[in-house]
Amino acid sequence: MAVAIGLRVGSTYSKDVGLGGPDMDDKQHFAVLDGLRGVAALVVLFFHTVQHHDLQKLPQAGLAVDFFYILSGFVIAYAYEKRLESSMNFSQFMRIRIIRLYPLLFVGVMSGLLLLILSHFIQGRPDLRDVFLVGLLAILLLPSYVFPQWATAYPLNMAGWSLTFEFYVNIVYALIVRYLSTRRLVIVVVLSLIALIWLALKNNMISGGNDQDNWIYGFIRVMFPFFCGVLLYRLRPASHLSNISALAANLFLAILLLSDFGRSWLIDLVYVVCILPAVVYFGSSLLVDGKTLSRFLLMGRLSYPVYILQDPIIRFFAEVNSRIHASFEMALAIDFLQILTVIVASYLALKYFDEPVRAWLTARSRRRLKPVATT
């Protein structure tokens, strides 16, 4: 699988977005972005399913990770910018991010670890010492070069690569946000765009971060979309209610990511620099209500577990597919069952593990946290 998205922060405006959490008006204000996040997560799930049959299919779906980085910049700025500039310190910010991301990351890594352990006992490989070393690296969100025969730098759960760079750019943002006037932010965006253009020209596409031979490029890849998202938040438009426009934006994103224009440096730059930021900007201007609101919020909640849990499940079904030598019709049925399994497992993990564990960790964090003086 060529790419696994980051994405990374799950529901854009869930109650644990900060120590206090936004009120219902805030959750409604950017609910369309939750819907867009959910669409992107489902596109990537479909993309990874298709990749097991044809690695060249759906090339634009690989840019979903860059879309998630744009969303992340917008969301992080919305949730934390004012507090980081005033009352919240760096350690508090990182504690919140770790609580938000790590419970399901742990489940995803342990699932991948279990598959490799089973492989060891069934096939006699890989070596158990290597397996546990890779597991330690995965928990620490560090790349693995233990298995050079596999391209991925995150063999237990390939989604881990984008979380690595999510944490990296979050750290950079938290350290500089107090000094980041809008003028300086524009300079950061321009400089990171120049670096992104260099990366696109070097690789003839925007890529990097996921494999052993391109992992270092992930540091370049994340910077422009994330800080572009921060800038979009600061320049966000006035909001208006339109369920129809919100649904159209979600459909448009799905079409964009499922299209096949091939991959080239120019196409990728048009997507990442122009089209995908425009989708986020437009989505941030829309309000929704009724069932559309509740559905978008659910899509946002499910997006992170769908992303982080899909890889071990897909690999399990791929192994089943290869062993039974399924016909075309049977392979389609297995693909459908695989997608359904990911969605159901994601919902159960969210409801009965992730949300309770995060609530418990947040409560403990609050009890240990001394009151923060406001300025």
Rank of each mutant, 00 (worst) to 15 (best):
L369P: 07
L251G: 13
Y78T: 12
L232Y: 13
S365M: 15
M88Q: 04
L118A: 13
L104F: 09
Q149P: 01
E355K: 10
L175T: 07
S72W: 06
L309Q: 14
E329H: 10
I206L: 15
L231W: 15
S119V: 05
T182E: 10
L232D: 11
F227D: 02
F226E: 01
L133A: 06
W265M: 06
F252G: 00
W150M: 14
I96K: 10
D211E: 12
G18W: 02
S181Q: 15
V357K: 04
L297T: 00
G62Y: 03
L185E: 14
M110L: 14
G300E: 10
L185N: 15
L133T: 12
P126N: 07
F252N: 00
S242G: 03
L104G: 03
A246D: 01
L105G: 02
L348I: 15
S11D: 09
S91Q: 04
Q51H: 13
D23M: 03
H52I: 06
N214R: 08
P356T: 13
D354I: 11
D25Y: 05
L104Q: 02
L309G: 04
T164H: 12
L201W: 15
L58T: 10
F261Y: 13
G300K: 14
A333Y: 05
P103C: 12
A64F: 05
S14E: 11
L257Q: 13
P305R: 07
L185K: 13
P103D: 06
I197N: 03
I313F: 09
L235Y: 10
L269A: 01
K57R: 11
H240M: 04
L185A: 08
T341S: 15
P103W: 09
V65M: 10
F261N: 09
G160L: 13
R364D: 12
N89S: 08
T152G: 04
R100S: 05
E166K: 05
D25C: 04
V222H: 01
R83Y: 07
Y271D: 05
I275K: 02
G6P: 01
L232W: 13
P225I: 02
F121C: 09
G6V: 03
A79Q: 04
S346W: 07
H53S: 14
V270D: 03
P237E: 14
L369Y: 07
F296H: 00
F328G: 06
P371I: 07
T341F: 09
S242L: 00
R236L: 14
V44E: 01
L332D: 09
L58M: 15
A195R: 11
L193I: 05
V273Y: 04
Q123G: 03
L71Y: 07
A249T: 05
G21D: 08
I314L: 15
S264C: 13
V230Q: 10
L348K: 09
D23Q: 02
H120T: 13
V107I: 15
I176P: 11
L116N: 07
S285T: 01
H48W: 07
L298W: 11
D54M: 00
V9S: 01
G6E: 08
I99Y: 08
L133W: 09
F132N: 03
Y168I: 01
V172R: 04
F47P: 03
V134N: 00
I244M: 02
P312T: 13
I98M: 09
R368K: 14
